[in-house]
Simulated scan of single mutants.
Amino acid sequence: MQSVEKHRSHGGTLEVFDHESAVTGTTMRFAVFLPREAEKADVPCLWYLSGLTCNWSNVMEKGGVLKAAAARGCAIIAPDTSPRGEGVPDDEAYDLGQGAGFYLTATQEPWSQHFQMDRYITEELQALVTESFPIAKDRQGIFGHSMGGHGAISLHLKHPELYRTCSAFAPITAPSQCPWGQKAFTAYLGSDNASWAQYDSAILALKQPSEAEILIDQGLDDPFLSEQLLHGIFEDACQTSGQAYALRRQAGYDHSYYFISTFMDDHLRHHMEGLTA
């Protein structure tokens, strides 16, 4: 790892690193916030997955997460949303290619060589982070926003032993049935939508519910709510399977980090209650 930025914040330390990834075949960048408690002992850890066009910086700079994490003695890991750089495939649209990895393993050209974001996060970066920093391996949770909310819920449901707690802000919860997800899944996975199910949170909640309660906050003034996020489908799946969830509909809030920062402390409380139970 190579440190590229380091900042003191709320008594802890935010540091940004580059490393060469064998999984994506690129240089990857991620951020780590360690609270002051990490100077003496291993601390709980939350993984934050960002949305379309974003990277590690969005939540660290605008999400209010540093103050909330410092107050609760919790580490935060913020990966990038996709591979990037020269030679990495891209698309002119914001919702495909660099910045839009959708937290899956692509099987279609030209994406399959580099776009392996689920394996990168759950395997390679997981090993790198837990070996390099004072993080309690058995006290990890995951959360995210929009595309990252899709990633957080789907990765939690597929790896509940790794990510014991889960929450999301305005997540894409049924990607195989919304325009964003259908476009990305067709490009990355091909037109046979049978392969899409393993990355669809609603389908996963129906077929393999976890023991954790999934907390979701959703702004009712979110312009993407009715067409892209499809929480009704996810709710139906949870109610059928018995997956515990709390979907809080917040009047007047949109899809932005103004919304996220408002409820960030609630999400940190949710995770810490689950990780210390």
Rank of each mutant, 00 (worst) to 15 (best):
residue 39 E to A: 15
residue 137 K to A: 13
residue 244 A to T: 04
residue 108 Q to E: 14
residue 40 K to P: 04
residue 255 H to A: 08
residue 2 Q to A: 05
residue 135 I to N: 01
residue 204 L to G: 02
residue 169 F to S: 11
residue 64 G to E: 08
residue 27 T to W: 14
residue 159 H to G: 03
residue 205 A to E: 01
residue 26 T to N: 13
residue 20 E to K: 15
residue 211 E to D: 08
residue 191 S to D: 03
residue 29 R to C: 06
residue 270 H to Q: 05
residue 221 D to F: 14
residue 196 W to M: 02
residue 201 S to H: 02
residue 4 V to G: 02
residue 265 D to T: 10
residue 197 A to Y: 12
residue 12 G to R: 08
residue 202 A to R: 01
residue 62 K to T: 11
residue 229 L to I: 10
residue 222 D to N: 12
residue 112 S to N: 03
residue 8 R to K: 14
residue 172 I to E: 00
residue 208 Q to T: 13
residue 268 L to R: 08
residue 140 Q to S: 10
residue 265 D to A: 11
residue 34 L to F: 05
residue 140 Q to R: 09
residue 171 P to K: 01
residue 115 F to W: 02
residue 79 P to I: 00
residue 30 F to P: 10
residue 9 S to W: 02
residue 23 V to E: 10
residue 233 I to R: 15
residue 253 Y to I: 14
residue 36 R to L: 12
residue 201 S to A: 14
residue 238 C to L: 10
residue 144 G to R: 11
residue 219 G to N: 12
residue 68 A to E: 12
residue 86 E to Y: 06
residue 171 P to D: 07
residue 230 L to C: 08
residue 219 G to T: 14
residue 240 T to N: 07
residue 115 F to D: 01
residue 260 I to Y: 12
residue 152 A to L: 09
residue 250 Q to Y: 09
residue 224 F to E: 03
residue 134 P to M: 01
residue 13 T to Q: 05
residue 184 A to D: 01
residue 72 R to H: 13
residue 60 M to S: 02
residue 167 S to N: 13
residue 173 T to G: 08
residue 191 S to V: 06
residue 68 A to Q: 09
residue 173 T to K: 11
residue 262 T to C: 09
residue 202 A to M: 00
residue 80 D to F: 10
residue 226 S to F: 15
residue 89 P to Q: 01
residue 24 T to R: 13
